[in-house]
Structures are given as structure tokens and as C-alpha cells.
């Protein structure tokens, strides 16, 4: 048995050394879409350091694609940072990322996508793992479970990062790369995506995401995380609002939206809902490639509408 254990140890040791070599030798692809996290983090840090009140936009890629921060800045006179990048980071990550940033006079707009309400915990998922390669700071924003969960997370994340590096290298060698819409350079200084907005809509409405959530209510975790943030913001004199994203008409389920909204109204504390989801259902042609990613026209329409809905709250 000792002989086997030694030999097994040697084989696994060689595998570990090879993986370590891959981690050390192949640099993180800092031109990748998720590397935009670094720029967003830098902007929120800089606004925080300035001591001036700020407006922080939080959510998945629906906000990255769908809100024009410049228009928001003009409308409300607050410097804006768009923290949103990808729903796959999960809601818990997004809220953890801004948890230490509320200051007096700040406005936080949280735009959760439907899927995030049902499954908000950031304890697994390819996007989380991939983000850690380009933004290792993100380790502190993922779900902090018990020692076993952390061990499992770290082991899986390490394997995923090794895979990512190898695949990126192989992809480069084979001349393959992600589409132009998904690179770090697509973000402007606010953190909005600007590159794909000049492109035509190519959304086909063939995803079935919304259907899978029919009949579900937002999870306890979603309520707990949101309420905790709202409480933190209120304690320092900042305001937090929940805003429904715009969604393609092909994928809008009025009943799911109604039930969800009603439930949130009953269970959320210290955070108001700014808009009615049914008012943000747009034609499919206003979406770029998914039911949440608006085109240029969709973004302008959504931003104008959001400003209109938000004005009565911020005027108080």
C-alpha cells in the first residue's frame, strides 16, 4: 500500500507541478472582457477617495449594455460608476463588491436580472472562476462558506483557471478569439459598454431562461443580501434603490414579473423599487445579442425611462 501511495503521490505531484507551471508561466489575459473589473474597481476607488457623493450602478451585463452613465450624470449631477459586467458573477459577489463603499449622499441603483433573484450565491460558476484569473481581488467578494466549502471552491477555481489559461493559449495559437463585443476595451470611462452599440440587433430570442423560473419566488438569500446592503447604506446616509432591467418582449413573462414584484414589495426592507417591470418590455429589435443586452437605441430609451422613474425618488 505504501508503494502505491508513494507512486500515486509522485504522479499527482507531477500533475500539480505542471499545473503550477501553467499558472506561473501563462499570464492572465488582461484584454479579456472580465478584466474590465479592474477598471471599474479603479473608478469606484477614485470616486470614493474624492469624498464627493456618487451614483453607483450595480447588476449584470444588462446594466453594462443598457444604461448610459453620461446621461445619468447629466440628469442627477452625480459622478457615475457602472460596476456591472456579468450576471454570472452572481448577485452576492456584486453586492459584496460595493458593501464598503456607501457614503453620505451616495445613490446605489441595483438592477438584478431575474435569474439572480433565484440563485444569488456566488459559490460556483465558470464566470466567477474566470474572473479570478484577471481580477484576483475578487476572492474576497465570493461566498465565504465554511472551511470545507472554501477548500472546494479554491480547488475548483484553480483547476478552472489552469484550464482557462491553456484554452486561451490554444485559442490564440489557432487564431480564435472572442467577439469584439466581449473584450476589456469595450468599456468606456464610466464602465458602460460602447463598442457593440453601433452594431445591428442580432437577438434571436431562442433562449429559454425565463421559462425555467416560472412559479419561483426570489430566494431568502436574495432578500437577506439586499436588506443587509440597504441597512448598511441607510446607516451612513446613502440611498439604495432596486430597478428592474429592460427585457425583450419575447422573453417577458408578465405573471412571473408580477408575482416577483409583489413578493419583493413584502419582503424587502429599506430599499424601494423604482419601476414597474412591465414598463420595461421592449421590442426584440432593441436588443443586441441576448434578452438583456440592449442596442444603442434600446440603451437610450431605457436610460431616459429610468431617469424619469428615478427623478421623483431623488427629488425628495
Amino acid at each position: 500500500m505504501i508503494k502505491l501511495l508513494i507512486r500515486l503521490g509522485v504522479v499527482l505531484g507531477v500533475v500539480a507541478v505542471l499545473c503550477l507551471a501553467i499558472l506561473k508561466v501563462i499570464p492572465a489575459n488582461q484584454q479579456a472582457y472580465l478584466a474590465g473589473l479592474n477598471d471599474k474597481q479603479a473608478r469606484i476607488d477614485s470616486l470614493q477617495a474624492s469624498g464627493q457623493p456618487k451614483m453607483v450602478l450595480v447588476g449584470g451585463s444588462n446594466v453594462a449594455f443598457g444604461i448610459h452613465s453620461g446621461m445619468m450624470e447629466d440628469a442627477f449631477g452625480l459622478p457615475v460608476v457602472n460596476m456591472a459586467i456579468h450576471a454570472g458573477l452572481r448577485y452576492e459577489y456584486m453586492i459584496n463588491q460595493i458593501m464598503d463603499y456607501p457614503s453620505q449622499g451616495d445613490v446605489f441603483l441595483i438592477f438584478p436580472e431575474y435569474s439572480q433573484m433565484y440563485d444569488p450565491i456566488s459559490d460556483a460558476g465558470p464566470i466567477i472562476y474566470q474572473s479570478l484569473d484577471v481580477f484576483p481581488q475578487g476572492f474576497q467578494y465570493v461566498h465565504q462558506g465554511n472551511a470545507y466549502q472554501q477548500l472546494k471552491f479554491r480547488a475548483t477555481a484553480t483547476a478552472e483557471i489552469v484550464q482557462l489559461k491553456v484554452k486561451t493559449t490554444l485559442g490564440k495559437l489557432a487564431g480564435m478569439s472572442a467577439g469584439n463585443a466581449y473584450k476589456r476595451k469595450v468599456f468606456d470611462r464610466y464602465g458602460d459598454i460602447w463598442t457593440p452599440l453601433t452594431l445591428e440587433s442580432r437577438y434571436k430570442a431562442d433562449d429559454k431562461h425565463m421559462d425555467r423560473n416560472a412559479g419561483k419566488l426570489p430566494s431568502e438569500d436574495f432578500i437577506r443580501i439586499t436588506n443587509a446592503f440597504a441597512e448598511k447604506a441607510a446607516a451612513v446616509g446613502a440611498e439604495a434603490y432596486l430597478v428592474y432591467p429592460a427585457i425583450a418582449e419575447a422573453k417577458f413573462d408578465a405573471e412571473v414579473a408580477r408575482v416577483t414584484r409583489e413578493d419583493l414589495r413584502n419582503r424587502l426592507q429599506g430599499i424601494e423599487m423604482v419601476n414597474n417591470p412591465a414598463d420595461y418590455v421592449y421590442p426584440n429589435t432593441l436588443f443586441f445579442d441576448t434578452k438583456y443586452h440592449t442596442t444603442q437605441d434600446g440603451r437610450v430609451r431605457r436610460t431616459e425611462q429610468t431617469i424619469g422613474d428615478l427623478r421623483p425618488f431623488l427629488a425628495r
Binding site: 504522479v11 505542471l18 460556483a124 475548483t156 483547476a159 484550464q163
Partner: peptide, 20 residues
């Protein structure tokens, strides 16, 4: 023989689907 063991394990580590 050992190269085969290491290569087989590396194939799984590098191309296995773990996150899903």
C-alpha cells in the same frame, strides 16, 4: 508508463468540465 498516467490525468485536469 508514468507518462501515460500523467498525460491521462492532465487531460482530465485541463479539459474536464468541473464548474458545471
Amino acid at each position: 508508463r508514468w507518462s501515460v498516467y500523467v498525460a491521462g490525468t492532465m487531460l482530465i485536469v485541463l479539459f474536464g468540465k468541473f464548474s458545471t
